[in-house]
Write a protein that binds this DNA or RNA. Structure first.
Lengths: 222, 222
DNA sequence: GATCGATCGATTGTTGACAATCTTCAAAAC
DNA sequence: GTTTTGAAGATTGTCAACAATCGATCGATC
């Protein structure tokens, strides 16, 4: 049985904190596909009422991390390899390319700076062999590219897909042998963003995602 | 047999009924983008407590039909034309093509029959000039193709996208001049499904969706 | 011995009261 | 005249009790 604990998130609602905690427990592999999530258990462990737990579970269901049927317990979701390769990765790519196209003409300096900061985080994570932080930074990098004021729905779909991808990648964490390649490759992407024409960026980006994502899902074959 | 409108919602949970009611109100245009949805108002209007209302609103938010921020009221979402053309339609196409590819080898006779039934409904709707039923049947046709046991998440994304497309199409309902074309075209698709090789199906399907969806979103230009 | 049905415990669904937070608007300070 | 402050009202967030439903268990019947 996994125990949940709050981090420094005093300003967030309980629902958001619960959702974040359970999501992390799933993504870090403490909860595995098929594990049962009972509202009463969780509420007692966290010493709060069932209301926010229910809502958090519904949020996780919308993200595709959890499945539930009426009057029956909800369980941690599972992801098939076919879905990852044929659906999640292509859609993710399409979402990011679309975001890049929309932003191409008017990138702000502050956004470049955010990306640079993340690359720095990647570098130190790679030096320390901290795979978790590296993955986190990788996702954050792409999240910034996708983020947009005018259509929150885009980012909503993107988040769900990336979470689902992570759910699949938990199964094989022994990979990523060359950690230093991650910051190096993202640095290339950033430079291209600043200097190259769009079609070149599109090509690089496509290569990057197909390589990055498929790296993991193709290795568990043998 | 398969009553396609399930009016009798007595067996569903309140949350599902509320969600369905609000969704219909949005999709039918009774609620317009920007309209406020207050929990207390709705709960009094429906004579139930706020709990199921809250959960229904969260479900609608996950579907992209509603937006909300903490401690502030939730409102009906809006969709930009750029998002429809560059994002929703391509992703929808990708989802359906993927589903077609997966099912291509083992379609069941009951599924063909379901599609035939829907085409019949389309025909009578077209004869009666019943645009609402026609659209409903159109969506149901494609929903059956996307439906799948093993990955509910696929259909979840698809539903959100299609709902969001409808949200945009509400603005211009004066189109669809030739209603009879809708059942005819779906009949062609069904025949292809039964007889043609996959790449031919893929081509026809792509044509169909781009035409069908863009029909509406390109006309409100001027 | 197998099958059907009632009962019980466990779990989710619903409710109304209470708490926390945001917005508004008017009065005070500068 | 403009800005700040701080109540008041409205709205969402949280809680604990109660209701509805499901699955398993145990007998009764054949």
């Amino acid at each position: 049985m996994t125990s949940f604990h709050f981090k420094n998130q005093e300003n967030l609602s309980l629902r958001q904190r619960v959702m974040s905690d359970i999501r992390n427990a799933i993504i870090q592999g403490h909860l595995k596909p098929g594990d049962k999530l009972r509202e009463l258990d969780i509420s007692q462990q966290m010493a709060i009422s069932r209301g926010p737990i229910r809502e958090a579970l519904r949020d996780l269901e919308a993200l595709g991390l959890v499945v539930s049927s009426p009057y029956r317990e909800t369980t941690v979701a599972d992801v098939s390899k076919g879905e990852v390769v044929d659906l999640l990765i292509p859609i993710r790519l399409q979402l990011e390319i679309h975001a890049l196209k929309q932003k191409h003409s008017n990138w702000s300096e502050t956004m470049y700076q955010s990306l640079r900061d993340i690359i720095d985080i990647m570098k130190s994570a790679a030096d320390n062999g901290d795979l978790a932080s590296l993955v986190e930074a990788d996702i954050r990098f792409h999240e910034i590219v996708v983020s947009s004021e005018d259509s929150a729905y885009t980012q909503q779909i993107w988040s769900g897909i990336v979470n689902r991808l992570r759910l699949h990648f938990i199964k094989n964490t022994k990979l990523f042998t060359d950690l230093a390649r991650v910051p190096a490759e993202h640095e290339e992407l950033l430079i291209a963003l600043q200097n190259e024409p769009f079609d070149r960026i599109e090509k690089l980006w496509t290569q990057h995602i197909l390589q990055d994502d498929c790296l993991l899902c193709f290795h568990d074959d043998k």
